[in-house]
Amino acid sequence: MSQARLMDGTALARRIVERTARRAAELTGRTGTAPCLATVLVGADPASVTYVRMKQNRCRTAGIVSRHVELPAETSTGELVAALRSLSQDPAVHGILLQHPVGEHVDERAAFEAIAPEKDVDGVTFASFATMSFGGPGFVSCTPGGILRLLDAYDVDLAGKRAVVVGRSAILGKPVGMLLLARDATVTYCHSRTRDLASVVREADVVVAAVGRPRLIKGEDVKPGAVVIDAGYNPGNVGDVDFDSAALRASLITPVPGGVGPMTIATLLEQTVDAAARQLGG
């Protein structure tokens, strides 16, 4: 049985960031203003701190100014909303990223909705989801957007294919399903209440695992020749797919790490420069 071909998100993301850096430099030279991404972190969750630091480093690589707003863990919904509205009104800030999670005591949806749609470069607001779903101009959710770019880079024709999305989160599962539907795939959403998950996954030409449960999808659940996108990330650099067994049946598969993750950040940076260009008239 042949081994699946790896979908190298690291290499593709590098090319996107290089192109984004050229666009940022051109925009800065023409307008005198560099694109600026504000990251907002509530508390000091170790994984979140690491993710934010990584995004700040990538911003520097791409010629994007990074402004970091760090709020204490006990920050209330009202205080977080006020901070996000302030950034939304600041003309020097072109994109805003609220790092997830924000704490169970905070109304995360209210916080997301405090971000101005034109600065929602992470694609988390109702406005962005609606615009994306109807194919309008706007910002896609970064991980789903990165997944579609990866599928395109490997010439995966989605038209008429059956796509199964395992997970229904507002910033990953639901939006990636809408993007796949827009490419004429037939989309099935699976979740914690799906009966006989394995039998549904076995019918998929394209599987997107985005549920946050390590090695949930086994090799025997994968249809021979399917494309497997593992958008999960669990402790120990483990995805939602049992990579070794799934790679024996899939035609294409993303590694963890090095698959979807780099594409998420590349999409974020690209959309930040897009936002800056629109706001600066470029």
Rank of each mutant, 00 (worst) to 15 (best):
P137T: 11
S245N: 03
G43T: 08
E18A: 15
A11L: 10
G95Q: 05
N57D: 10
D230A: 06
T50P: 08
Q89G: 15
V187N: 12
G160T: 11
G123S: 12
V93C: 08
I16V: 15
I64N: 09
R67C: 11
A21N: 13
A153P: 02
P46L: 07
G32L: 05
V121E: 10
L84Q: 02
G258Q: 06
D155S: 11
Q3T: 14
R183H: 13
V206C: 01
K119N: 08
G160K: 08
A13E: 07
L172G: 06
V65P: 00
V260I: 12
S48Q: 07
A231I: 05
S88M: 04
G135C: 01
T125Q: 03
I96S: 10
T194L: 04
A163M: 08
G281R: 12
T33S: 10
M1P: 08
A153L: 01
A62L: 11
E18T: 09
L280K: 06
I115Y: 07
R183A: 02
A47G: 12
G123I: 09
V273D: 04
H68Y: 12
T20K: 01
L216A: 07
T75Y: 00
V106N: 07
G232W: 09
T39M: 12
A247I: 12
T186D: 02
L180W: 06
I217H: 13
P72C: 09
G219D: 13
K119R: 12
T28A: 14
G239Q: 13
S66C: 13
A246T: 03
A82L: 05
G103S: 02
D184W: 12
R168G: 00
A47Q: 11
P101L: 01
I171L: 13
P72H: 09
T125C: 07
T254E: 00
H68S: 15
V201L: 14
K218N: 00
T186S: 14
E26D: 14
G103N: 01
I96L: 08
M1F: 01
A276Y: 10
V222E: 00
R53T: 12
